[in-house]
């Protein structure tokens, strides 16, 4: 019965939209013929009519929440009492917040850079060996795994069982095989951040690899031949010809991964839950928003900080894109 009513709602919704477009379009035609004033505005009016529903949905679900988040960030736990800047003041003094910012910066610097770098290098090398396609497929595979799934897989790699027990973690197995003491990897501050980043790099290299492989095909082979004749080594060709040629692609991939990393949450949630100084902004926000009764004020401050972080990167990306189109 519920499925039936659901389907009915969807159907009614679609019908309502079809009716809206048809009726408004018809009305515009009808009045356009009678009033020269409307006739002049016809094109822009029609555009408004057709964009309006999408714009309203966008507004309700994306733009309104942004303003609501900003509003909430000035209120108390339950969004009732106005507190002014005190939530922000708290954030600046909070050591967890500072560490999160620092960790986020670490993620931002290391993950996009290494993912892009590995993707580019592997895409280049894979074209030179017969098993390149197989290697590329394997490297791409993590893209199909959810972050939480990836976390579970990597838990087995970093697993620690105490010094007397047999180690089932891959990394500890290797360390023990070389005669060193096994380590509880995820509890060693600073380093554990790098271990978590490795997971993200492992996933995102696949994305970079696939896009770079396609982009590499677009470089004319005669240009590379010309460089070879000019006396360039393969390494020099890579730096002086291929990288400048792929500049735009590199930029796009780097921004995609950067934005993704800025929002990183699942991996940390699944692996350490922010313990041992691995806290990042998204994680901290979740903690404040939904844990221990929830604090929508402080949670909103953190959410707002993430958004502030994403905006310049997005803006820069758009600017680059426009510049590209102009040429």
């Amino acid at each position: 019965m519920t499925i039936f009513s659901l389907a009915l709602t969807v159907l009614l919704g679609i019908l309502a939209f079809v009716l809206f477009f048809h009726v408004s379009n018809f009305l515009l035609d009808y009045f356009g013929k009678r009033s020269s004033k409307i006739f002049k505005l016809e094109n822009s009016l029609r555009a408004v009519i057709f964009i309006a529903p999408a714009f309203i949905i966008l507004f309700v679900f994306i733009i309104y929440p942004v303003f609501e988040t900003i509003r909430l960030s000035f209120y108390d736990k339950i969004g009732r009492e106005f507190l002014g800047w005190s939530n922000y003041a708290w954030a600046i003094k909070d050591p967890d917040f500072r560490r999160s910012i620092l960790n986020n910066f670490g993620w931002l610097l290391i993950v996009p850079t290494l993912s892009t770098f590995f993707g580019l290098v592997i895409a280049n090398l894979a074209d030179r060996v017969w098993w390149g396609t197989i290697a590329k497929s394997i490297i791409f595979m993590p893209m199909a795994i959810s972050f939480v799934g990836a976390g579970v897989i990597w838990k087995f790699i970093y697993d620690y069982r105490g010094p007397e027990q047999e180690q089932i973690g891959l990394l500890n197995a290797i360390v023990v095989a070389f005669g060193f003491e096994p380590q509880a990897w995820l509890t060693i501050p600073v380093w554990n951040n790098l271990f978590l980043m490795a997971i993200m790099i492992w996933i995102q290299t696949g994305l970079a690899l696939v896009i770079f492989s396609a982009a590499l095909r677009s470089i004319p082979s005669e240009t590379l031949d010309a460089a070879r004749i000019d006396g360039a080594s393969e390494l020099k060709i890579f730096w002086s010809i291929i990288i400048p040629y792929l500049q735009q692609t590199i930029l796009v991939i780097w921004t995609i991964i950067t934005i993704l990393v800025l929002k990183v949450f699942d991996i940390i949630y699944a692996m350490t839950n922010g313990q041992w100084q691995t806290e990042v902004l998204a994680n901290l926000m979740y903690d404040w928003m939904f844990r221990g009764g929830g604090d929508s004020g402080r949670g909103s401050v953190l959410a707002f900080c993430i958004m502030i972080g994403v905006i310049p990167i997005l803006g820069w990306n758009l600017y680059q894109h426009r510049k590209e189109q102009k040429i």
């Binding site: 004319p220 005669e222 240009t223 031949d225 010309a226 004749i229 002086s240 400048p244 040629y245």
Partner: peptide, 11 residues
Amino acid sequence: MVFQSYALYPH
């Protein structure tokens, strides 16, 4: 060598 497509370095 001079190529048909010119093969200049575009950047």
